[in-house]
């Protein structure tokens, strides 16, 4: 019976050389992803379900690592820190990015130069960027003192006060990533046909009306993409808090990713570090879906 079927559909079973060639070209890339992205995730998940001391995978403990992590005061604190940091940074960075994009939209010579200037903090490595800000904001450099002196503040360390340290962290994010938001939004702005704006002007629409009724609706997808990329970036920030504030003072700027980093590479609790990684991962996905939902509610994308 099956043999008869085989004989009846020779075309379907014949190896298609073009298809084989096409697959051969993507296999190296897939192999890299499988070995160094997906395999780690599998191994990491395996670790998260076991009692791990350094690299000795002990007995299977089920969700114990996850429960332990969720019961940890430090982890809960880090989640609150991350939420605060991400929310503040997202709102401000996006607003500044959008303002910059609108302000520098025209291709005049000064606008092009300004775009280059605001992008410099973005191309510089995050490590060095945070290091430079750390130097600028440290008491050693004397810059903040010089700036704060007129306000009658003489001995204040920005990085050792919980509130101002969080402020500094958010400033770091804004300083580096506003230009990134600007570029993504600028690409969106440029793809709006000029004729639409011209037509709206001919129809007598004011600048504000055109922004509200033309630019924003047509920018919906670029805005969503920008928000997603910024949110993922801020919700998983490691370098900023590690370098600028080292999570301090008193863990008030210790983000979840920094907590994972310390769990893994200071405490060598790889089981828990992996567990927290996957918890964060799931939170990321939930956040993403929520964001997309909000956008879908406000009309079709």
């Amino acid at each position: 019976m099956s043999l008869a079927l085989l004989l009846h559909s020779p075309r379907r079973l014949r190896f298609n050389p073009t298809e084989g060639f096409a697959l051969a070209l993507v296999v190296p890339a897939l192999a890299m992803e499988a070995m160094f992205v997906f395999a780690p995730l599998v191994v990491g998940f395996w670790f998260s379900l076991h009692d791990v001391r350094y690299f000795n995978v002990g007995r299977f403990v089920g969700w114990d690592n996850y429960l332990a992590v969720l019961n940890s005061q430090l982890v809960v604190n880090s989640m609150i820190v991350t939420a605060t940091f991400a929310a503040l940074s997202l709102v401000i960075t996006f607003s500044i990015g959008l303002s910059l994009a609108l302000y520098l939209e025209r291709d005049s010579r000064s606008a092009v130069l300004m775009r280059t200037i605001v992008l410099v903090p973005y191309v510089v490595s995050m490590l060095v960027g945070s290091l430079l800000l750390k130097w600028l904001l440290s008491q050693d450099s004397g810059v903040t003192q010089a700036l704060l002196l007129p306000f009658g503040v003489s001995d204040f360390s920005i990085l050792s006060d919980p509130k101002s340290a969080m402020g500094a962290l958010v400033f770091n994010a804004i300083w580096r990533d506003s230009a990134f938001a600007m570029i993504l939004l600028l690409a969106g702005l440029k793809s709006i046909p000029r004729e639409l704006h011209l037509a709206a002007r001919v129809d007598g629409a004011s600048a504000w009306y055109r922004f509200k009724r033309l630019t924003l609706p047509m920018l919906k997808l670029p805005i969503l993409i920008t928000l997603i990329r910024l949110l993922m970036h801020f919700a998983n920030s490691l370098t900023y808090p590690l370098i600028l504030t080292a999570g301090g003072p008193m863990a008030t700027t210790e983000t979840t990713t920094l907590r994972i980093f310390r769990l893994g590479f200071s405490d060598y609790m790889l089981g828990r570090a992996n567990a927290l990684t996957f918890l964060t991962f799931i939170l990321n996905v939930v956040l993403l879906i929520a964001l997309v939902r909000v956008f879908q509610k406000n009309g079709k994308l």
Partner: peptide
């Protein structure tokens, strides 16, 4: 789909699993 998925995984959430694998 795989390409887009990997692009949207933050690298920070890959480091512990990656370290785990690379060390082993």
């Amino acid at each position: 789909l795989i390409i887009i998925a990997v692009m949207s995984i933050p690298i920070a959430s890959l480091i512990v699993p990656s370290y785990t694998l690379m060390a082993s």
